[in-house]
Simulated assay, not measured.
Amino acid sequence: MGSENCIDKKHFVLVHGACHGAWCWYKLKPRLESAGHKVTVLDLVASGANMKKIEDVDTFSQYTEPLLFLLDTIPSNEKVVLVGHSFGGLNIALAMEKFPEKVAVGVFLTAFAPDVEHHPSYVLEKYSERTPLAAWLDTEFAPSGNKTTMFFGPNFLSDKLYQLSPIEDFELAKTLIRPSSLFMEDLTKQKNFSKEGYGSVPRAFIVCTEDLAIPLEYQLFMIQNVGFNEVVEIKGTDHMAMLCKPQELFDSLQQIATKYA
């Protein structure tokens, strides 16, 4: 039995979304670890405990550096299960583009999923077209250098992101979120992700049925647009599945990892 258990150990790399940080995985990480997996949670630049300010980050790839640095250090004979939440879908896509041989599967957790036919910004542009400015509620947008910064307001957090999550997690988020950016201006200038890079890695999508931030219909549009090897649904969860339904998310990730990693 022992050796089989060793084979089952996976390395999960968990990537947070905009304004969030490594802290948002605090319920999922111990679940994965107690199942014997290795888990890396990281703060992207100007997120969580990372010391930089968003004002000093000019490009999307600069923002993604901690993830790219991590994958660079993974031995060439190892593969990780890369999980991106929300805007983190674009970060994992960039990592899959640059290190396709080091990613067993890219998991998009109700996340923005780019395709290989359009600019990386396409999936955000389409989302903006469908999302009236009023839907952002008290989120603050501000020009900063060559980009626009974004900071979720408490109403947006409670009504659109955390509406089904425990009140304690909403309180935690209010104290820990930081201004971020969608780097639209930079992403419109980047070349498409390639079939040989990003497009060559197996992809899975985890649908969150009660997500009000990236609504179900938009999740389904992305699934249709990109094409996924695997689609798993978590019923009754808001945008913050790792806080709202951590056990169901753990089960979904186990299922995907067993198949692809």
Score class of each variant (00 low, 15 high):
residue 117 E to H: 11
residue 154 P to W: 01
residue 80 V to Q: 03
residue 70 L to D: 05
residue 95 A to R: 00
residue 119 H to Y: 14
residue 133 L to W: 15
residue 48 G to N: 11
residue 111 A to V: 01
residue 152 F to Q: 13
residue 60 F to M: 01
residue 99 F to E: 05
residue 65 E to K: 12
residue 153 G to C: 07
residue 52 K to D: 11
residue 114 P to T: 05
residue 55 E to L: 14
residue 160 K to V: 13
residue 137 L to Y: 07
residue 123 V to M: 03
residue 122 Y to R: 11
residue 67 L to F: 07
residue 87 F to W: 06
residue 159 D to K: 15
residue 157 L to W: 12
residue 131 T to H: 03
residue 65 E to W: 09
residue 92 I to D: 00
residue 55 E to T: 14
residue 124 L to E: 06
residue 134 A to W: 04
residue 104 A to I: 00
residue 102 K to V: 09
residue 105 V to T: 08
residue 162 Y to D: 05
residue 90 L to A: 04
residue 124 L to Y: 04
residue 156 F to G: 08
residue 84 G to Q: 00
residue 148 T to K: 06
residue 63 Y to I: 07
residue 58 D to E: 13
residue 52 K to W: 12
residue 91 N to Q: 09
residue 115 D to F: 01
residue 99 F to H: 11
residue 72 D to Q: 13
residue 93 A to Q: 01
residue 64 T to I: 08
residue 98 K to W: 01
residue 59 T to N: 06
residue 97 E to W: 02
residue 56 D to R: 09
residue 95 A to S: 04
residue 132 P to W: 05
residue 121 S to P: 10
residue 58 D to P: 00
residue 120 P to D: 01
residue 48 G to K: 08
residue 66 P to H: 02
residue 147 K to P: 00
residue 76 S to Q: 11
residue 147 K to N: 06
residue 58 D to F: 10
residue 59 T to H: 15
residue 78 E to T: 11
residue 88 G to M: 05
residue 86 S to W: 01
residue 155 N to Y: 09
residue 143 P to A: 14
residue 102 K to R: 15
residue 129 E to F: 08
residue 120 P to F: 01
residue 163 Q to G: 06
residue 52 K to R: 13
residue 94 L to K: 09
residue 127 Y to M: 13
residue 93 A to V: 04
residue 91 N to D: 10
residue 109 L to V: 09
residue 160 K to R: 10
residue 98 K to A: 07
residue 65 E to I: 05
residue 55 E to I: 14
residue 129 E to G: 06
residue 123 V to W: 02
residue 81 V to N: 03
residue 121 S to L: 12
residue 139 T to N: 12
residue 104 A to P: 02
residue 157 L to F: 09
residue 118 H to C: 09
residue 128 S to Q: 12
residue 125 E to N: 13
residue 143 P to F: 08
residue 86 S to I: 02
residue 127 Y to F: 11
residue 134 A to N: 06
residue 122 Y to P: 05
residue 161 L to G: 04
residue 111 A to Q: 00
residue 49 A to R: 11
residue 139 T to Y: 09
residue 155 N to K: 15
residue 66 P to Q: 05
residue 100 P to T: 07
residue 83 V to A: 00
residue 139 T to W: 07
residue 122 Y to I: 05
